[in-house]
Design a protein around this nucleic acid. Structure first.
Lengths: 159, 159
DNA sequence: TGTATGAGTGCACAACCTGCCTAGCGATTC
DNA sequence: GAATCGCTAGGCAGGTTGTGCACTCATACA
């Protein structure tokens, strides 16, 4: 779906100060409370806004190491049981099926490099996993963000 | 830092119903309001909770294609200007410096495969980028999550 | 031209929640 | 023993929410 300028400003505002109430948002944006309420409902209904955190930092919990593990798996038709088993490992934060030499790419975290070994061991022992390849993220100069995408809204006035 | 069972339950509760107030949380968890307030403050102060969304879905905005682009760059000492320039591309959602053959790994989204070409072109023309390699995420059987990590809290009672 | 329709405004109401404070209790630490 | 910490329980004023309603305006379309 497309969003207009007001939606974008609303998302940006909530992003900056998430615990803001509807009323305060309406004041900041210079529109009526009902409008903010309606926009918020619409954005949520249409799936643009999927939720409101809380956003948890793995690093703050002691998971300082992030790695990307790609793997080849024994291919099966239909739904993939390997992903299900990977999902049972808490340190696996994300799994994608991908193009290229490997079949799956997942993001994992661990407390230390030694702990990463333990996590990778758990991955390797998942049935159907044939080979893995790990890449450690040393630093994250641009942490995950969506705001620029939202701000990049086509120039429809939107009040 | 370490969190206890109550913290974990609080995070899980807020994750499930994010717009819940402090008072309602305290009722659901069976503790006093002040406690929830204190826990929340503490978790936020210590950086475990970094914010409260809103979580925006790129897919809902029409960005249906996700890809991981790894690249080699012309190495420079100190702070990396390539990452800064990549950060100016809205479709670049995340940038990591990594171990292995490549230097940077970034997550990008695009509206279509053709649009992905446009985004990659923008990346390639960034000064200092020597070579890129793109992997498309076909499907995401496990979307980004942190809850299992939180739930995996050591068995300290925590009421 | 006439008329739905959708979106926004402004206002009102009761119920509820928040921020803040106080006081007491039990466990832990020194 | 004394201090400290985390939790419970309660009170208070003021702000906010959810909801409903009447009105306006612009767009779309027979």
């Amino acid at each position: 779906m497309t969003i207009d300028n007001l939606d974008a400003r609303l998302i940006a505002l909530l992003h900056a100060e998430p615990r803001l109430g509807v009323l305060e948002c309406s004041r900041r944006l210079g529109v009526a409370r009902g409008t903010v309420q309606a926009r918020l409902d619409r954005l949520t209904d249409r799936g643009v806004i999927t939720g409101f955190g809380p956003d948890v930092s793995p690093a703050a919990l002691g998971y300082d190491v992030t790695a990307f593990v790609s793997m080849e798996i024994r291919q099966v038709a239909g739904h993939d049981p390997v992903a299900d088993r990977l999902a049972r490992i808490p340190e696996v934060l994300e799994v994608h099926t991908i193009t290229g030499d490997s079949d799956l790419l997942c993001r994992v975290v661990a407390r230390t490099n030694a702990d990463l070994q333990r996590v990778i061991d758990r991955i390797v022992e998942v049935q159907g996993v044939l080979r893995t390849n790990s890449i450690i993220a040393l630093d994250t100069p641009v942490p995950y963000r969506v705001l620029p995408l939202v701000a990049d809204v086509p120039r429809r006035p939107g009040r």
